[in-house]
């Protein structure tokens, strides 16, 4: 059976996870904790990106619309073709995914799961316990989270650039996100995400528009 590159990308967006919790201690210093959770992040927002997905050197373009309510742990994601065709429209409500609309080959539950995992990494505070926090001599804030068998390390540089890396329990690279300023209305102008491993892929996000949401007005329902 011959798979298209993007379909391979889709099928590999989720990975097997080893159920071995990592030992850790939790940072409780409120000053350091505050540095790791920037207060200017929007709780609820809508953002539109031009997305370029690349796997094995082959690229494809999309438009992504994301509506998120971080405290409620809800995301609605709509993936469009450049021509405006809705390829996928789905909601992740506390980990429970409902697909409202999907076209082949974007209909698989694995694709939706992978999509929401990527969105969470981009826009949500890392899951798990904050196990490390320090401020370097040059002002770089480095924070580490452990979520069961995953490690997230975030470096927020004085330049405004932020890099988030995800490792597995063996400290192998899983995903890397680079958020590049300028920051417009609280949203980074450019984001690049790389996923490593056998089905590695990269996603490039260019901000088209973004805004905080005061009321969700049924945006998560069909």
């Amino acid at each position: 059976m011959k798979y298209s590159p993007l379909l391979l990308l889709v099928l590999t967006m989720t990975s097997c996870r080893v159920a071995t919790p990592l030992p850790h201690t939790i940072v409780t210093d409120p000053y350091l904790t505050g540095k790791c959770f920037p207060p200017d992040r929007h709780d609820a927002f809508r953002v539109v990106h031009a997305i370029t997905a690349t796997i094995r050197g082959k690229s494809s373009s999309f438009i992504g619309v994301t509506v998120a309510d971080v405290p409620a742990d809800r995301i609605r994601a709509t993936l469009l073709s450049v021509e405006g065709l809705v390829l996928l429209d789905a909601v992740d409500d506390k980990g429970s995914i409902t697909v409202y609309r999907a076209m082949q080959p974007f209909t698989s539950a694995r694709f939706a799961r992978g999509l929401f995992d990527d969105i969470e990494l981009l826009f949500f505070p890392p899951r798990g316990d904050l196990t490390g926090a320090r401020i370097g001599a040059n002002g770089t804030v480095t924070c580490t989270w452990v979520d069961h068998d995953h490690i997230f390390k975030k470096n927020a540089f004085p330049s405004g650039e932020t890099v988030i890396k995800e490792y597995d329990s063996d400290h192998r690279d899983m995903r890397r996100v680079k958020l590049s300023p300028p920051i417009i209305k609280g949203f980074y102008r450019h984001i690049r995400m790389d996923s490593y491993g056998l089905g590695g892929y990269s996603l490039s996000f260019d901000l088209l528009e973004g805004e905080p949401l005061e009321q969700e007005d049924g945006l998560f329902s069909q």
Binding site: L6, T54, K58, S59, S61, S81, L85
Partner: peptide, 26 residues
């Protein structure tokens, strides 16, 4: 850019200051 010529379809996207063939499943 979407081109249809002689019954063949080709799609191109702008990546890193140049057009490259869109190999998406669509």
């Amino acid at each position: 850019v979407l081109l249809v010529h002689g019954g063949k379809v080709a799609m191109y996207i702008w990546v890193k200051d140049a057009f490259t063939r869109d190999e998406g499943p669509q």
